[in-house]
């Protein structure tokens, strides 16, 4: 166990001296903080605009439109996008070179002549990543809650705190998926830059290509149905776009995150318990992807080629 902890600590030290990683981590924190402010000021502007509209309507003797429905937690919803964008790339930054650099520096050979197994080395690196990603998300959680109270002058209730906490736990799962993937690529690749770009392609494929394909299908289906007069409002998804998005952990996490933070109109009114039951398949999907990657990682790490 002490060997794994020593490796985890070493990973921390090295990451804390990596300027690019630090820039990304700080960017992530700043964006998550800024997003609360931006979200809040947009909603305030929207409410002010609504007040103006009501006033004008009254002056003209007309009826005022119904007030837009705003859930306070929705102001934090940008964090979901930042996790999909910056969070996943941050996890890739952490993992893509984890094995390759050890191999290049000759330290992997030294590590494995100490009383450690390959599994311990992988565990140590995972522990390090768990600590770093966990800390980052814990800081995000604290900052978001504080800003939520300070900027919006709202005290979140227990359910809102639980929603944010569950969202960040799932964000942790999502980021660890990319870390494990990057670690696996790092085990296999013989060139750090190549490993990084491969992971970027994987990231783009899951976070952008698949959701875009689903979106293209949805637009197409809407245009056709609209023409025949069957549908007048763009659906949030169609059966085919839902099926396409099943192949994207990013799309799954975005839907789950938006539902938890009440940014998705269909799920926003649901109680947390009901929502969680409804979202169980998505939660299991994200956990399952993680588990599959971990199995793959430990299986690959056992092989001798790791050294070469």
């Amino acid at each position: 166990m002490s060997g794994r902890v020593a490796i985890a600590q070493k990973e921390w030290r090295i990451a804390s001296r990596d300027s690019v990683f630090l820039v990304m981590a700080i960017l992530f924190l700043i964006m998550s903080i800024a997003s609360v402010y931006i979200g809040s000021s947009t909603k305030s502007a929207e409410l002010k605009a609504y007040a103006d509209i009501v006033q004008v309507a009254r002056q003209q003797g007309g009826t005022a439109p119904a007030a837009p429905l705003i859930y306070p937690l929705e102001m934090l919803a940008n964090i979901v996008d930042y996790i999909v964008m910056i969070g996943a790339v941050l996890a890739i930054f952490l993992g893509y070179n984890a094995f390759h650099s050890e191999r290049e520096n000759g330290t992997l050979r030294i590590l494995l002549t100490h009383p450690l197994t390959q599994k311990d080395v992988v565990m140590g690196k995972l522990l390090g990543a768990i600590g770093m990603i966990g800390m980052l998300l814990a800081a995000t959680f604290a900052f978001n809650l504080l800003l939520f109270i300070a900027v919006d002058k709202l005290v979140p209730n227990t359910e809102e705190v639980a929603r944010l906490a569950i969202c960040l736990v799932m964000a942790f799962t999502y980021m660890m998926m990319f870390y494990s993937g990057a670690l696996w690529v790092s085990l296999k690749a013989r060139d750090g830059g190549f490993a990084f770009l491969i992971m970027m392609i994987v990231w783009i494929f899951f976070s952008f290509v698949i959701p875009q394909l689903a979106d293209t299908q949805r637009n197409y289906a809407f245009a056709i149905s609209n023409l025949s007069g069957l549908v007048t409002k763009m659906p949030s998804e169609t059966a085919a776009s839902h099926l396409i998005n099943l192949f994207s952990p990013a799309a799954q996490f975005t839907n789950l995150g938006n539902a938890l933070l009440q940014a998705d109109a269909d799920n926003a009114p649901l109680r947390l318990g009901v929502l969680l039951i409804r979202q169980t398949p998505v939660i299991l999907y994200l956990l399952g992807c993680n588990l599959a990657l971990l199995i793959l990682l430990f299986h690959s790490a056992k092989r001798e080629e790791v050294l070469e």
């Binding site: 002490s2 060997g3 020593a6 490796i7 600590q9 070493k10 030290r13 090295i14 001296r17 990596d18 290049e104 520096n105 000759g106 330290t107 050979r109 030294i110 590590l111 002549t113 100490h114 009383p115 450690l116």
Partner: peptide, 24 residues
């Protein structure tokens, strides 16, 4: 064991490298 052309952890100090391997 000392492998050929070992570079160790460049971003860690001599002390930190040795503490790490000592613990292992």
């Amino acid at each position: 064991y000392l492998p050929e052309n070992v570079r160790l952890y460049g971003d860690l100090t001599v002390w930190e490298n040795l503490v790490f391997f000592g613990k292992l």
